[in-house]
Design a binder for these strands. Structure first.
Lengths: 190, 190, 190, 190
DNA sequence: AATGAATGAGGCTTCATTCAT
DNA sequence: GATGAATGAAGCCTCATTCAT
C-alpha cells in the first residue's frame, strides 16, 4: 500500500495558499487546488473532509506559523522593552513581508467557512504575549490597562499600517518604522 | 438602468445591506435581495448593471454615510484637541455600535467585487481628516509624522478594539474608552 | 413574465418516466431528464425541489393514474361479481400493458428516494377497492377475510403474472387470462 | 480472482448482505463492504472482478439458500397436498421471517447490476417445484394450468402478503396464515 | 495475497443573468 | 418599467477502480 503521506497535508495547504494569493478566496476552487498540488481532486478529500475543513486547517496552520515568526529573537533574559520592541518589529516585519497572508487570515475570519472553535483555538496562541504584557505591567513600564485593549491596539495598528502601505505601493522605510514604534511605545508606556 | 425612480435604487441598497448583515456577504444572492426589497429579480438589473455594480454602489453609499457619522459635533472653531477627541470617540462609537458594518466594509474591500476606482474614491472622503491632522501638526500638538501612518494607527486600533470586544461579547465601558483614548493621544501627541 | 407553465410539471414527469423505462432508475440523471424534456437543468429545479422530490411526485402521479385505469367501466349499479371481474381484468390489462410502470413503482417503492408519507398517501387511494371488497363480503359472495390479505392476494398475483410473462416474452392469451381469473375467483369466493 | 481462500469469498458476501439489509442496495459502497468484512477495498477485487460481479454472486448465493429453506420437511413419499401445503408454509414463513431478503432480491433483480444469465440460472432452481406441480396435475388434484401462471400466482401472492403485513407492522397470525393457504388451495385445486 | 492511498469521471445542485410577456 | 420563469455554466463532492508497496 501507499502509506498516507503526512507531508501531503502541508502540500495541499501550501498549494491552497498560493491560489488564494493569486486569485482570491472567493475564486478558490477545489479542482484548482488539486491542480496546483499536482494531485487528483479526490485526494484532497482523503486529507480534508471538505473545503471548509481544509480552510479551517489552513487558518490554524498559518496562525501558528505567524506566531513562530513573532517569537524570533525574543529572549526572556533580556529587559522588557527590548523584547517588546523586538516583538513589535517582528510583527510589523511579518505583516509587511506577508501582506497577502494577513489579508487572507482576515478574509477567512469573516468568511462562512471558519468555525468558531478554530477561531477560539487561535486566540489561545496569544497567551505568551499576554504574559509578556503582564510582566511589563508588573515592572510598571507599561500602562496598567486591559490586555485586550493593549492587544487590539498593537495588532490593529500594525496590521493597518502594513496594509495601507502595501495598498498604496509604498515602502515602509526604517525611519517610518521607528516613528511608528515610537508612537506605539508612547501609547503604552506607563 | 438609471431610471427616474431614484428611491428604488436606495430601497435595493438598503435591502442588500440588511441581508448582508443578517447572512453575510458570502451567502448574498440576487434572488434574496429581490425578495427583501419586494421586487422581482429582473428589476434589480434595471437599476444596477449586475451584482458587482450593485455592491460597488453599496460600498460608496455606505462609506459616505459613515463619514457623516464621524463628522458629528466637529466644529472647526473649537481647539484641535477637542475636535480630535470628538472625532476619535465618534469613530469608536460608530465602530462599536455598528460592528457588522466595519466587517462588511472589510469583507467587501477584499472581495473580487470591488473596483479599485471605487476604493480610491472612498479614500478621498478622508481628506477632511488629513487636513485636520495637518492642522494639528502646524500647531505642534501632534507628532510631525506621515499622515498615512497616523491614519493607519488611528483607524487600525479603533477598529480592532471594537471588533475584539464585540467578538468576546464584552462591553466597552466609558473608563476603558477613556483609557484607549489616552493611549491614542499619548501615541500621537508631540 | 413567462407565467409558470402548469403543464411543464407533467412534461418533466413524463420525460422522467420515459428515461427510467429506457435506462432504469439507477441510471437516471437530472441532466438527461432536462434533455429529454427539452429544457435546461435549472428549470427542473423550478418545478421540483430536487431529484428526490421529483421522484416522489412521479410516484404519486402514476399511482393516481393507475387507479383511474382500474376504475374504468366499474359501475356500482352492476352486480358485485361483474365489477370484481372487470376490476381484475382492468388491473391485469394495466399491468400487462405497462409492464415497466409496475416495475418502476416497485423499484421506487424500495429506493431511498421515496418518502414514507408519500407511500402512505398512495395507500389511501385503495379505499374504493376496500369498500368494494366489504360489499362483496356483505353479500356473502367472497370469503370474510382480512382486507389486507385479499388485497395482497389480488395485487401480488396479478403483478407477478404480468411480470413473469413479460420477462419471458410470452403473450397472455385471453384463455390464460380467463384461467387466471378463475383461480382468483376460486380463491376469494365464499 | 478466485483464490484458494474460499471462505473469504463467503465472508465478503455475508458482509455485503448485512450492509444491504441495514442500509439498502442504493447506498451500498465497496468501501463499506470492505469495512464490514474487516479487509481492504483492494482485497474485494481479488475475489470479485467488480461490484457487479460481487452482486451477481450474492444473488445466486442467496437464491440457493432460500431454496434450501423452501425444501425443508418436503418428503416425496408424502401425499401431494401435504407437500404442497408444507411448501407453501415454508415459503410464507421464509418471506415473513426475512422481509428484507425478498425486497433485496427484488431490488437486485431490477438493478442494472444483475446479468440476465444469472437470472436465468436462478430460474432453474425452481424446477423441483415445477415438477411437483406437474405431479399434482397428473393426480388431478390441481388445475391443469400453465406452470408459469401457477408459479406467478403462488409466489406473487405470498410475497405480497408478507410484504404488506411487514410494512403495516402487522403480525400474521396462524389463523390468517391458514385463511391465506385456504385461498391459495381453492385457487389451484382442480 | 493484502493493503489503502490515489485517481478522476461524472452526478447533483446553485445562482447570476437574460428575455418573453 | 416590471416581472419571474428559464437558462446553463460551473462548483463541490462521491465512489468504483487501480496500483505501488
Amino acid at each position: 500500500m501507499k502509506s498516507k503521506d503526512e507531508q501531503k497535508e502541508s502540500t495541499i495547504i501550501r498549494a491552497t495558499l498560493q491560489l488564494i494569493f493569486r486569485e482570491g478566496l472567493a475564486g478558490l476552487k477545489m479542482s484548482n487546488i488539486a491542480k496546483q498540488a499536482s494531485m487528483a481532486v479526490g485526494t484532497l478529500y482523503i486529507y480534508f473532509k471538505n473545503k471548509e475543513d481544509l480552510l479551517n486547517h489552513l487558518f490554524l496552520y498559518f496562525k501558528r506559523e505567524s506566531m513562530t515568526q513573532l517569537a524570533q529573537k525574543i529572549d526572556f533574559a533580556q529587559p522588557f522593552k527590548v523584547n517588546f520592541k523586538q516583538l513589535w518589529h517582528n510583527y510589523l516585519a511579518y505583516a509587511v513581508d506577508n501582506p497577502e497572508q494577513a489579508t487572507l487570515l482576515e478574509q477567512l475570519h469573516y468568511s462562512p467557512y471558519l468555525r468558531p472553535e478554530v477561531v477560539a483555538e487561535t486566540d489561545k496562541l496569544l497567551q505568551p504575549i499576554r504574559d509578556m504584557l503582564d510582566e511589563g505591567k508588573r515592572q510598571m513600564l507599561i500602562k496598567n490597562t486591559d490586555n485586550e485593549l493593549l492587544l487590539a491596539f498593537l495588532s490593529g495598528s500594525i496590521n493597518q499600517i502594513a496594509r495601507r502601505f502595501h495598498e498604496n505601493d509604498r515602502k515602509l522605510s526604517p525611519e517610518l518604522r521607528e516613528q511608528a514604534f515610537d508612537m506605539t511605545w508612547d501609547a503604552v508606556r506607563a
